[in-house]
Amino acid sequence: MYEFEFVKPTTLADAIAALGAEEAQALGGGQTLIPTMKQRLAAPAVLVSLTGIEEMKGVSIGDGIITIGGATPHAVVAEAVAGAYPALAALAGNIGDPAVRNRGTIGGSLANNDPSACYPAAALASGATVVTSNREIAADDYFQGMFTTALEDGEIVTAVRFPVPEVASYRKFEQPASRFALVGVFVAKYPEGVRVAVTGASEEGVFRWTEAEAALSVEFSPDALEGLNVSPEGMIGDLHGTAEYRAHLVKVMTKRAVAACIG
């Protein structure tokens, strides 16, 4: 890792100021960024830790909305929303491993937008709102492709607001070495309709499977997906699975998620 200047502000205002420096980068729990820096794929001059900012930590639940501070670790989310949004709790409680969940944060995951990360699927399927240091961004506008988001330089994910669905489920087919999703599908049923978000599969990162949403909004059962197929075009193909395999898994995991919702 190249040397950098480390700063750990205790307020959001100080963090925003620190991120104004040349080549500055925000650090959440570091579970992706530190390995990336070790490989010298990232080399910020200034690293601004967000873990000391109390106003960005914690979970509040009310009026059908769950608000999670951007610097809240996965392990805390898993425990805090177990009653209010069990599918989200289950997702958070199955990211990486226990030690990773004690450090990694929701804001860090969403800012990084790894194409195989779990949280982007939850945020997109829930129609969440990403709250940043200067605006609010709808999940539909936030995710803009692999490792790409609507965030601008120096913009911090301060919180994420999830509308609580009637029922939801996340099914992850794990890549067994990394435990990232080979394909993960989050299905969430709201009064306005069903939303289906897929991670791990596409070269474009997390995406909504709109044909499945339409079919499931008419009939919420695995059978409603029978006639649908996902094209392998644009799917990730690598040593862990071909594009065709991932395309197939999208449908399989969606069916399993729906079955889990109604079972």
Partner: peptide, 22 residues
């Protein structure tokens, strides 16, 4: 690379991988 867990210690009572924390 934070895969193996040989470096797990507790920080403020929580298990963490000390190779992936500054």
């Amino acid at each position: 690379t934070s895969q193996c867990g040989a470096c797990v210690v507790h920080v403020d009572g929580k298990a963490v991988k000390s190779c992936t924390m500054l």
